[in-house]
Design a protein around this nucleic acid. Structure first.
Length: 275
DNA sequence: CTTGTACCCTGACCGC
DNA sequence: TGCGGTCAGGGTACAA
């Protein structure tokens, strides 16, 4: 479901709700959302009593920093959070609640995941730092320059669209923003990374950062499953130029937007201005 | 090494 | 109305 702007939006919503609070009880309704070797009961026993010190993000992962360990969560396609009082989630369409975390002030954090592709992982600092080292640089970090993008992207022969979505090259970019960033940079998504010029890398760097920031300002893109916390919608879908717009005219040049499939995922692009 | 494919799961939508 | 096929903001294991 969510990419960098969506996960960061959720982080910003969750942090003030959770920070400083102790988790008093955990209920796991589907063991398959506990990633790794712990059973639901073992997971519960190790989380209950822990205090949440802070909420961070890396790539598309959320980190609940506990007073003992890090509760890592990945939302994949349909994971969502809500915080409310009482036994019923505050959002009507939470029909697939997979886990609940009671807080020390009587509120509950609900995790809903229709497809149950997302889930939770309890790690130590060192386990997390090993996981984390597989990710490429954060594209919105201040120090992320065009040369860093070039270094991350310009090896191998992968199509640039696939390379952008490769989390070990650049962190946090998924299917929507890969298409949008390439359109903004006027680069054909099928181009092999090895052939990209310095000028194209500079355009892609500017385009990627502009689009991710702009989406973050809009609280992300909601046209399907994604919601921020407690059902709040994003609005960047109104600003998408190519994604899910097959058959529409390009806002740059008027040619008809096309959809192709790369690595099993839809890519949208304009054959007129993306060369 | 790098790149592509199948798969996890449920639901919405489309054509027949 | 039902049925089958396809697709969905992701990531991983495994094959070539």
């Amino acid at each position: 479901m969510p990419e960098l702007p969506e996960v960061e939006t959720i982080r910003r919503d969750l942090a003030p709700e959770l920070e400083g609070h102790r988790i008093t009880a955990v209920r796991v309704h589907h063991d398959d959302i506990i990633i790794g070797t712990l059973s639901g009961a073992e997971f519960r026993d190790r989380i209950e009593g822990r205090r949440i010190l802070g909420v961070d993000r890396r790539a598309k992962w959320l980190l609940l920093r506990l007073d003992d360990g890090i509760l890592v969560t990945q939302l994949r396609m349909t994971g969502r959070f809500a915080v409310g009082r009482g036994s019923v989630p505050p959002v009507a369409d939470f029909r697939h609640v997979a886990a609940e975390f009671d807080l020390d002030d009587g509120r509950t954090l609900f995790y809903d995941d229709m497809r149950r592709l997302g889930g939770f992982l309890l790690l130590s600092e060192s386990e997390w730092s090993r996981e984390e080292s597989r990710f490429g640089p954060e594209p919105l970090n201040d120090g992320f320059r065009a040369s860093d993008l070039g270094q991350a992207l310009r090896h191998g022969r992968a199509p640039v669209k696939n390379a952008l979505m490769d989390q070990s090259r650049v962190a946090g970019v998924g299917n929507i923003y890969a298409s949008e960033a390439l359109h903004g940079a006027r680069i054909d998504p099928t181009r092999p990374v090895s052939g990209l010029t310095d000028e194209e890398i500079r355009r892609l760097h500017r385009s990627l950062r502009r689009i991710l920031k702009s989406s973050l300002d809009s609280s992300g893109t909601t046209f399907r499953d994604y919601r921020a916390v407690n059902g709040r919608s994003g609005s960047f879908q109104t600003l998408l130029r190519v994604y899910d717009r097959e058959g529409d005219p390009c806002t740059n040049c008027g040619q008809v937007i096309r959809r192709i499939v790369q690595a099993g995922r839809s890519t949208y692009y304009c054959p007129g201005c993306q060369l």
